[in-house]
Design a protein around this nucleic acid. Structure first.
Lengths: 146, 146
DNA sequence: TAAATGTACACCAAGTTAGTATAATATTAA
DNA sequence: TTAATATTATACTAACTTGGTGTACATTTA
Protein backbone atom coordinates (compact mmCIF):
# COMPACT_ATOMS: atom_id res chain seq x y z
CA UNK A 1 0.00 0.00 0.00
CA UNK A 2 2.79 2.41 -0.77
CA UNK A 3 4.47 4.38 -3.50
CA UNK A 4 7.93 3.28 -4.55
CA UNK A 5 11.08 5.03 -3.51
CA UNK A 6 11.42 6.01 -7.15
CA UNK A 7 8.09 7.86 -7.06
CA UNK A 8 9.17 9.59 -3.87
CA UNK A 9 12.35 10.74 -5.62
CA UNK A 10 10.28 11.91 -8.58
CA UNK A 11 8.04 14.02 -6.36
CA UNK A 12 11.12 15.63 -4.89
CA UNK A 13 12.67 16.22 -8.31
CA UNK A 14 9.51 17.90 -9.57
CA UNK A 15 9.36 19.85 -6.36
CA UNK A 16 12.88 21.11 -6.89
CA UNK A 17 12.10 22.20 -10.45
CA UNK A 18 9.03 23.97 -9.10
CA UNK A 19 11.19 26.17 -6.91
CA UNK A 20 13.00 27.58 -9.94
CA UNK A 21 11.93 30.55 -12.03
CA UNK A 22 9.49 29.52 -14.73
CA UNK A 23 11.36 28.03 -17.69
CA UNK A 24 14.66 27.63 -15.82
CA UNK A 25 16.58 24.41 -16.36
CA UNK A 26 18.49 22.41 -13.80
CA UNK A 27 20.95 19.62 -14.57
CA UNK A 28 20.37 16.15 -13.20
CA UNK A 29 23.51 16.61 -11.16
CA UNK A 30 22.15 19.65 -9.38
CA UNK A 31 18.78 18.04 -8.76
CA UNK A 32 20.42 14.88 -7.47
CA UNK A 33 22.61 16.69 -5.01
CA UNK A 34 19.96 19.06 -3.81
CA UNK A 35 17.44 16.29 -3.19
CA UNK A 36 19.87 13.57 -2.17
CA UNK A 37 18.91 11.21 -4.98
CA UNK A 38 21.38 8.75 -6.59
CA UNK A 39 22.31 10.39 -9.90
CA UNK A 40 22.00 7.35 -12.19
CA UNK A 41 18.68 6.45 -10.73
CA UNK A 42 17.44 10.00 -11.13
CA UNK A 43 18.48 10.10 -14.78
CA UNK A 44 16.41 7.02 -15.50
CA UNK A 45 13.44 8.34 -13.61
CA UNK A 46 13.58 11.68 -15.42
CA UNK A 47 13.04 9.80 -18.68
CA UNK A 48 9.74 8.54 -17.34
CA UNK A 49 8.74 12.05 -16.35
CA UNK A 50 9.72 13.22 -19.80
CA UNK A 51 7.74 10.47 -21.53
CA UNK A 52 4.76 11.45 -19.42
CA UNK A 53 5.15 15.03 -20.62
CA UNK A 54 5.85 16.48 -17.20
CA UNK A 55 9.37 17.74 -17.90
CA UNK A 56 11.37 18.78 -20.93
CA UNK A 57 15.01 17.86 -21.35
CA UNK A 58 17.86 19.67 -23.09
CA UNK A 59 21.05 17.92 -24.12
CA UNK A 60 24.55 19.27 -24.25
CA UNK A 61 26.45 21.82 -22.26
CA UNK A 62 24.10 23.92 -20.16
CA UNK A 63 21.42 21.32 -20.78
CA UNK A 64 19.14 19.97 -18.09
CA UNK A 65 15.49 19.62 -17.23
CA UNK A 66 12.61 22.02 -16.81
CA UNK A 67 8.94 21.63 -16.02
CA UNK A 68 6.71 21.56 -19.08
CA UNK A 69 3.82 23.06 -17.12
CA UNK A 70 3.35 25.39 -14.23
CA UNK A 71 3.65 23.85 -10.75
CA UNK A 72 -0.05 24.42 -10.17
CA UNK A 73 -0.82 22.20 -13.17
CA UNK A 74 1.13 19.18 -11.95
CA UNK A 75 -0.52 16.96 -9.36
CA UNK A 76 0.93 14.23 -7.15
CA UNK A 77 -1.14 11.74 -9.11
CA UNK A 78 0.48 12.88 -12.37
CA UNK A 79 3.94 12.20 -10.98
CA UNK A 80 3.14 8.96 -9.19
CA UNK A 81 1.40 7.46 -12.21
CA UNK A 82 4.22 8.58 -14.51
CA UNK A 83 6.60 6.52 -12.39
CA UNK A 84 4.66 3.65 -10.87
CA UNK A 85 1.93 3.28 -13.47
CA UNK A 86 -1.79 3.51 -12.75
CA UNK A 87 -2.84 3.67 -9.12
CA UNK A 88 -4.98 0.69 -8.20
CA UNK A 89 -5.23 -0.75 -4.75
CA UNK A 90 -5.72 -4.38 -5.66
CA UNK A 91 -5.20 -6.72 -8.58
CA UNK A 92 -8.85 -7.14 -9.45
CA UNK A 93 -9.31 -3.42 -9.84
CA UNK A 94 -6.56 -3.34 -12.43
CA UNK A 95 -7.61 -6.41 -14.37
CA UNK A 96 -11.16 -7.42 -13.44
CA UNK A 97 -11.06 -10.23 -16.00
CA UNK A 98 -8.48 -12.09 -13.96
CA UNK A 99 -10.33 -11.65 -10.68
CA UNK A 100 -10.68 -15.11 -9.14
CA UNK A 101 -13.70 -14.04 -7.17
CA UNK A 102 -16.66 -12.49 -8.94
CA UNK A 103 -15.10 -9.35 -10.38
CA UNK A 104 -15.57 -5.74 -9.48
CA UNK A 105 -19.19 -5.64 -10.54
CA UNK A 106 -20.42 -8.61 -8.54
CA UNK A 107 -18.13 -8.66 -5.51
CA UNK A 108 -19.01 -6.27 -2.71
CA UNK A 109 -15.49 -6.36 -1.34
CA UNK A 110 -14.05 -5.17 -4.59
CA UNK A 111 -16.76 -2.59 -5.02
CA UNK A 112 -15.88 -1.12 -1.64
CA UNK A 113 -12.17 -1.14 -2.46
CA UNK A 114 -12.95 0.56 -5.73
CA UNK A 115 -14.64 3.41 -3.92
CA UNK A 116 -11.69 3.80 -1.60
CA UNK A 117 -9.34 3.79 -4.56
CA UNK A 118 -11.26 6.56 -6.27
CA UNK A 119 -11.13 8.67 -3.13
CA UNK A 120 -7.40 8.12 -2.94
CA UNK A 121 -6.90 9.12 -6.57
CA UNK A 122 -9.03 12.20 -6.04
CA UNK A 123 -6.89 13.16 -3.06
CA UNK A 124 -3.68 12.61 -5.01
CA UNK A 125 -4.90 14.62 -7.96
CA UNK A 126 -6.16 17.48 -5.83
CA UNK A 127 -2.74 18.39 -4.54
CA UNK A 128 -0.39 20.27 -6.86
CA UNK A 129 3.13 21.61 -6.57
CA UNK A 130 2.15 25.24 -6.20
CA UNK A 131 0.39 24.26 -3.00
CA UNK A 132 3.50 22.50 -1.79
CA UNK A 133 5.62 25.54 -2.60
CA UNK A 134 3.26 27.82 -0.72
CA UNK A 135 3.28 25.48 2.24
CA UNK A 136 7.07 25.39 2.29
CA UNK A 137 7.35 29.18 2.30
CA UNK A 138 4.90 29.53 5.13
CA UNK A 139 6.92 27.08 7.18
CA UNK A 140 10.33 28.56 6.75
CA UNK A 141 9.58 32.25 7.09
CA UNK A 142 6.41 33.99 8.18
CA UNK A 143 5.21 31.41 10.59
CA UNK A 144 8.36 30.35 12.36
CA UNK A 145 7.50 28.46 15.53
CA UNK A 146 8.26 30.18 18.81
CA UNK B 1 0.16 1.47 -4.00
CA UNK B 2 -1.79 -1.71 -3.50
CA UNK B 3 -2.77 -4.31 -0.98
CA UNK B 4 -1.28 -7.77 -1.40
CA UNK B 5 -3.19 -10.70 -2.82
CA UNK B 6 -2.99 -12.17 0.67
CA UNK B 7 -4.88 -9.20 2.12
CA UNK B 8 -7.47 -9.53 -0.63
CA UNK B 9 -7.92 -13.21 0.32
CA UNK B 10 -8.19 -12.21 3.97
CA UNK B 11 -10.95 -9.72 3.23
CA UNK B 12 -12.83 -12.43 1.41
CA UNK B 13 -12.30 -14.97 4.20
CA UNK B 14 -13.61 -12.51 6.79
CA UNK B 15 -16.45 -11.69 4.47
CA UNK B 16 -17.37 -15.36 4.23
CA UNK B 17 -17.34 -15.77 8.01
CA UNK B 18 -19.54 -12.67 8.23
CA UNK B 19 -22.23 -14.38 6.20
CA UNK B 20 -22.57 -17.13 8.82
CA UNK B 21 -24.81 -17.06 11.87
CA UNK B 22 -23.07 -15.39 14.78
CA UNK B 23 -20.67 -17.83 16.45
CA UNK B 24 -20.77 -20.39 13.65
CA UNK B 25 -17.47 -21.97 12.62
CA UNK B 26 -16.28 -22.83 9.13
CA UNK B 27 -13.30 -25.03 8.32
CA UNK B 28 -10.44 -23.66 6.25
CA UNK B 29 -11.41 -26.12 3.56
CA UNK B 30 -14.90 -24.72 3.24
CA UNK B 31 -13.68 -21.14 3.24
CA UNK B 32 -11.03 -21.93 0.66
CA UNK B 33 -13.43 -23.56 -1.74
CA UNK B 34 -16.15 -20.98 -1.33
CA UNK B 35 -13.80 -18.06 -1.91
CA UNK B 36 -11.43 -19.74 -4.35
CA UNK B 37 -8.36 -19.31 -2.17
CA UNK B 38 -5.43 -21.81 -2.16
CA UNK B 39 -5.94 -23.85 1.02
CA UNK B 40 -2.37 -23.84 2.32
CA UNK B 41 -2.05 -20.15 1.78
CA UNK B 42 -5.34 -19.53 3.52
CA UNK B 43 -4.28 -21.56 6.55
CA UNK B 44 -1.21 -19.43 6.98
CA UNK B 45 -3.12 -16.21 6.56
CA UNK B 46 -5.75 -17.28 9.09
CA UNK B 47 -3.00 -17.44 11.70
CA UNK B 48 -2.32 -13.76 11.14
CA UNK B 49 -5.99 -12.96 11.52
CA UNK B 50 -5.99 -15.01 14.69
CA UNK B 51 -2.93 -13.28 16.10
CA UNK B 52 -4.61 -9.96 15.37
CA UNK B 53 -7.64 -11.14 17.36
CA UNK B 54 -10.05 -11.02 14.44
CA UNK B 55 -10.90 -14.73 14.36
CA UNK B 56 -10.88 -17.61 16.80
CA UNK B 57 -9.74 -21.07 15.80
CA UNK B 58 -10.80 -24.52 16.98
CA UNK B 59 -8.69 -27.60 16.42
CA UNK B 60 -9.80 -31.15 15.82
CA UNK B 61 -12.84 -32.72 14.25
CA UNK B 62 -15.56 -30.13 13.67
CA UNK B 63 -12.98 -27.46 14.26
CA UNK B 64 -12.63 -24.35 12.15
CA UNK B 65 -12.68 -20.61 12.40
CA UNK B 66 -15.20 -18.04 13.58
CA UNK B 67 -15.18 -14.27 13.88
CA UNK B 68 -14.26 -13.01 17.33
CA UNK B 69 -16.39 -9.90 16.86
CA UNK B 70 -19.51 -8.91 15.03
CA UNK B 71 -19.08 -8.00 11.35
CA UNK B 72 -19.95 -4.40 12.12
CA UNK B 73 -16.94 -4.25 14.45
CA UNK B 74 -14.38 -5.37 11.89
CA UNK B 75 -13.10 -2.79 9.42
CA UNK B 76 -11.15 -3.20 6.19
CA UNK B 77 -8.24 -1.47 7.91
CA UNK B 78 -8.28 -4.09 10.69
CA UNK B 79 -7.94 -6.90 8.17
CA UNK B 80 -5.44 -5.22 5.88
CA UNK B 81 -3.15 -4.24 8.74
CA UNK B 82 -3.41 -7.72 10.27
CA UNK B 83 -2.01 -9.13 7.03
CA UNK B 84 0.18 -6.49 5.43
CA UNK B 85 1.22 -4.59 8.53
CA UNK B 86 0.66 -0.88 9.10
CA UNK B 87 -0.64 1.14 6.17
CA UNK B 88 1.85 3.80 5.15
CA UNK B 89 2.14 5.20 1.68
CA UNK B 90 5.83 5.87 1.64
CA UNK B 91 8.98 4.84 3.47
CA UNK B 92 9.55 8.11 5.28
CA UNK B 93 6.10 7.99 6.81
CA UNK B 94 6.93 4.63 8.36
CA UNK B 95 10.39 5.46 9.54
CA UNK B 96 10.96 9.23 9.51
CA UNK B 97 14.42 8.76 11.01
CA UNK B 98 15.68 7.12 7.86
CA UNK B 99 14.20 9.75 5.57
CA UNK B 100 16.96 10.91 3.26
CA UNK B 101 15.23 14.22 2.70
CA UNK B 102 14.24 16.35 5.65
CA UNK B 103 11.76 14.11 7.43
CA UNK B 104 8.01 14.34 7.73
CA UNK B 105 8.12 17.48 9.82
CA UNK B 106 10.28 19.56 7.54
CA UNK B 107 9.48 18.26 4.08
CA UNK B 108 6.33 19.59 2.46
CA UNK B 109 6.10 16.64 0.10
CA UNK B 110 6.00 14.20 2.97
CA UNK B 111 3.60 16.35 4.93
CA UNK B 112 1.20 16.28 1.99
CA UNK B 113 1.59 12.52 1.61
CA UNK B 114 0.95 12.13 5.30
CA UNK B 115 -2.37 13.90 4.99
CA UNK B 116 -3.36 11.68 2.07
CA UNK B 117 -2.36 8.62 4.04
CA UNK B 118 -4.53 9.62 6.97
CA UNK B 119 -7.50 10.11 4.67
CA UNK B 120 -6.91 6.68 3.21
CA UNK B 121 -6.73 5.05 6.62
CA UNK B 122 -9.89 6.84 7.66
CA UNK B 123 -11.65 5.52 4.57
CA UNK B 124 -10.41 1.99 5.21
CA UNK B 125 -11.46 2.07 8.83
CA UNK B 126 -14.87 3.52 8.08
CA UNK B 127 -16.02 0.50 6.11
CA UNK B 128 -17.02 -2.61 8.03
CA UNK B 129 -18.26 -6.05 7.09
CA UNK B 130 -21.87 -5.46 8.07
CA UNK B 131 -21.99 -2.76 5.41
CA UNK B 132 -20.56 -5.16 2.86
CA UNK B 133 -23.14 -7.78 3.81
CA UNK B 134 -25.95 -5.29 3.46
CA UNK B 135 -24.65 -4.18 0.10
CA UNK B 136 -24.47 -7.77 -1.13
CA UNK B 137 -28.05 -8.48 -0.16
CA UNK B 138 -29.31 -5.39 -1.94
CA UNK B 139 -27.53 -6.46 -5.08
CA UNK B 140 -28.68 -10.03 -5.34
CA UNK B 141 -32.33 -9.66 -4.48
CA UNK B 142 -34.42 -6.53 -4.11
CA UNK B 143 -32.68 -4.48 -6.69
CA UNK B 144 -32.09 -6.92 -9.51
CA UNK B 145 -31.25 -5.06 -12.71
CA UNK B 146 -33.82 -5.11 -15.51
C1' DT C 1 37.61 19.42 -30.63
C1' DA C 2 37.02 19.02 -25.57
C1' DA C 3 33.92 19.27 -21.95
C1' DA C 4 29.43 18.96 -20.18
C1' DT C 5 25.43 17.22 -20.52
C1' DG C 6 21.45 13.83 -21.59
C1' DT C 7 20.11 8.91 -23.72
C1' DA C 8 19.93 3.94 -24.24
C1' DC C 9 20.55 -0.51 -22.89
C1' DA C 10 22.02 -4.06 -20.12
C1' DC C 11 23.00 -6.00 -15.79
C1' DC C 12 22.45 -7.32 -10.86
C1' DA C 13 21.72 -8.07 -5.65
C1' DA C 14 18.35 -7.99 -2.26
C1' DG C 15 13.76 -8.14 -0.83
C1' DT C 16 8.91 -9.34 -1.41
C1' DT C 17 5.13 -12.13 -2.87
C1' DA C 18 2.51 -16.01 -3.49
C1' DG C 19 2.61 -19.89 -2.87
C1' DT C 20 4.00 -25.45 -1.60
C1' DA C 21 5.76 -29.44 1.45
C1' DT C 22 6.13 -32.02 5.51
C1' DA C 23 5.34 -33.28 9.95
C1' DA C 24 3.24 -32.60 14.31
C1' DT C 25 -0.66 -31.68 17.53
C1' DA C 26 -5.51 -31.44 19.18
C1' DT C 27 -10.30 -32.97 19.20
C1' DT C 28 -14.07 -35.85 18.33
C1' DA C 29 -16.56 -39.93 17.31
C1' DA C 30 -16.88 -44.69 16.57
C1' DT D 1 -8.16 -46.45 21.93
C1' DT D 2 -7.82 -45.61 17.44
C1' DA D 3 -8.99 -43.39 13.07
C1' DA D 4 -10.39 -39.39 10.99
C1' DT D 5 -10.61 -34.56 10.74
C1' DA D 6 -8.89 -30.34 11.78
C1' DT D 7 -5.48 -26.77 12.98
C1' DT D 8 -0.42 -25.48 13.85
C1' DA D 9 4.46 -24.92 13.01
C1' DT D 10 8.36 -24.69 10.29
C1' DA D 11 10.81 -24.56 6.31
C1' DC D 12 11.41 -24.14 1.48
C1' DT D 13 11.11 -21.97 -3.23
C1' DA D 14 10.24 -19.86 -7.89
C1' DA D 15 9.01 -15.65 -9.91
C1' DC D 16 8.70 -10.91 -9.66
C1' DT D 17 9.78 -6.21 -8.09
C1' DT D 18 12.73 -2.74 -6.41
C1' DG D 19 16.52 0.11 -6.23
C1' DG D 20 20.14 0.53 -7.89
C1' DT D 21 24.99 0.46 -11.08
C1' DG D 22 27.98 0.19 -15.55
C1' DT D 23 29.19 1.16 -20.13
C1' DA D 24 28.92 3.25 -24.28
C1' DC D 25 26.95 6.66 -27.13
C1' DA D 26 24.76 11.20 -28.81
C1' DT D 27 24.19 16.18 -28.57
C1' DT D 28 25.37 20.88 -27.66
C1' DT D 29 28.29 24.73 -26.59
C1' DA D 30 32.55 27.24 -26.04
Amino acid sequence: MRITQEADYALRAIYYLSTLEEGTKASANVIARSQNIPLRFLLKLLQKLRNAGLVESYMGVNGGYALSRKPKDISFLDVIEAIDGPVYINRCLYDPESCNNLGVEKCSIHKALHQIQENLKKDLSSINFQQVLDDTELDGTEYEEV
